[in-house]
Simulated assay, not measured.
Amino acid sequence: MLIVLLTSFMARPKHEVAEIIHRFRADLEKQYELPVQVKKTLTVLGNCRTLAMGGHVSVCTDCGSESISYNSCRNRHCPKCQTVNKERWILARESELLPVPYYHMVFTLPHCFNELLPKHATEIYNGLLKASWQTIQSFAADCKFLGAKAGMVSILHTWGQQLWLHPHVHCIVPGGGLTKSGKWKAAKYKDKYLFPKRAMSLVFRAKFMELLRQKMEVPQTIAKTAFKQNWVVYAKRPFASPKTVVEYLGRYTHKVAISNHRLQTVDSKQVSFSYKDYRDSSQNKVMKVSGVEFLRRFVQHILPHGFVRIRHYGFLASKNKSKELNRAKTDLNEPKWEKQKYSLEQICEERLGIKANQCPSCHSQTWRVIRTLEPERGPPARVKPNLKRWEKMKW
C-alpha cells in the first residue's frame, strides 16, 4: 500500500536500468554466455513494479482518488528497491552505537585478481571480507595498539564509478574494544588514525593470499603481480559523532552498481551515464557506451546466490551482541541493546516523513486497498510423454 506513497515521495529518474535490460538483454545473451543466477536477476529487475509482479488497487474513501501499485522485486541488485531496506538497517544500527570515536577504512583488491572473478567470485569476495577483519583484529589484539577484541561492520562493493570491476570493502570500526575481563578499553589515538595504514596494507596482503590459497590454486603470474604491488588500505580520521557514522554508512550499505538517477540518455544503440572522476579532482563527467557494453559491465556486479555482502564481526557479530555489546554499553553507561523489528509503516513515518494510509492527493488518512492484482504467469510448458520409456517400465 505504501509503494504509491514512496514513489510519489521520491523524484522519478529519466531512465531506468529495467529499460536498458528490456532493450539490450537479447543482444547481450547472443554475445556472452550468462550464468543462470545472472539471467534470473535480469528477469526480476526487468519485471520490478510491473504487472508481471502483481500488485493492488488502492482508493481514497474521502476524495475518490484511485491508483494502481505494482509489487517490487526486492532484489538487492535493483536500483528501485533499496530505500526501505536501507532505512530499516540504519534504525537497527542506531541502537548499537557506542559513545566512542568511529573510524572508516577501505580495503581494496588489486585489479590483477579481476580475471579470476568470473569463476571464483565467492572465494575472492569471501577472502577479501575475512582478510580485512583478520587484519583489524590482529592489530587490535596487539597491546602496542589496543590490546582488546575489536568490532567491525563491513560492506562489500565491487564497482567503480564507470562500472568496471573494483572490489573493495568499506569498514566502520569503533575506537576501542573489550578486554579479556569484559571491560571496555578505548583506542590510544583518539584524534588520529586507529592503526598505521602502511603496516595494515602489508598484513592485509598476507592474510588475503593465505586465505585465497586455502580455497583455490592462484596462478603464479597473478601471485607475482600481487606481491609486487602496494595494496591500498584507506583510513580516515574519526567521525564527528557516533550518529553521523550510521548515516554515513547508510550511503554504502544498500547501494547498487549504478542508480537510475545517474542515467542520462538511453536510445536504440547507446547509454550515457554520469560519473565522478576521482583522478580529476572528483569532477562530474558523462560516459557514453553501447547498450550491450553497459549491461555487460552491470552484470559483473551481480553477486553469487546467497552471498552475504554486509557482515558484522567481533563484539558486533550477531551471536556476540547480546553479551559482548551489552558489556561495552554497561561499561560506558549506555542503555542495554535489544533486538527490535521495524515495520514498513514505522520506517516511512520515522525516516521518510510519510504517514501510512495517507492519500497522496487530499492527504487524509483514508487510503485503502480494494483489490489485489495477481502476478502474470505463463502457462506451464507442455511436455510430450516418452511412450517408449513408459512401455519399458516394469511394474
Rank of each mutant, 00 (worst) to 15 (best):
S281Y: 05
T253V: 14
L146Q: 05
Y125D: 08
K255F: 02
Q162W: 11
L34G: 00
F298W: 09
Y193V: 02
T122E: 09
W89P: 00
E16F: 13
H22A: 15
V308Q: 14
L211V: 10
S154R: 01
R296W: 08
L344Y: 05
V173M: 00
G353L: 04
M10L: 15
D191A: 15
A226R: 07
E94G: 10
E29N: 09
F113V: 01
F139C: 06
Q300F: 00
L146C: 04
E19V: 12
G306T: 05
W390Y: 04
C143Q: 12
A223Y: 12
F298Q: 03
L5G: 05
H111L: 10
F239I: 00
I68V: 08
R74V: 11
F139K: 06
A187K: 09
I310P: 00
F294L: 10
G250D: 10
V383L: 15
M53W: 01
N260F: 12
A150W: 02
K236M: 06
N284G: 00
H254R: 08
E374L: 09
P385H: 11
R251Q: 07
F315R: 04
V369D: 09
K288D: 11
L163H: 11
F227D: 08
K394F: 07
R351M: 08
L212V: 01
T61R: 15
G147M: 12
V100P: 02
M209F: 02
G378A: 15
A235Q: 07
S132W: 08
I302H: 00
H15W: 10
K144A: 15
G291E: 11
S272D: 01
F145T: 12
P99Y: 04
P219M: 15
K392G: 08
K215R: 11
E324C: 14
V292L: 11
F107Q: 06
K236Q: 06
K149M: 13
P167K: 09
H305L: 14
L34C: 00
K243M: 08
V232D: 11
Q214G: 15
G147W: 13
W337V: 06
Y313N: 03
I3Q: 12
T244R: 11
H15E: 07
G176F: 02
L2K: 13
Y234D: 00
V271R: 03
F239A: 03
H15L: 10
S72Y: 09
K188G: 03
E334F: 03
C48F: 04
K236G: 02
R25S: 07
P242Q: 07
L202S: 06
V289S: 13
R377F: 14
F208L: 06
A26G: 09
K285C: 04
S282M: 14
W159E: 13
G64W: 02
I20A: 12
V266I: 08
W395E: 12
R23L: 14
S154F: 04
Y125M: 12
L387F: 13
R237H: 09
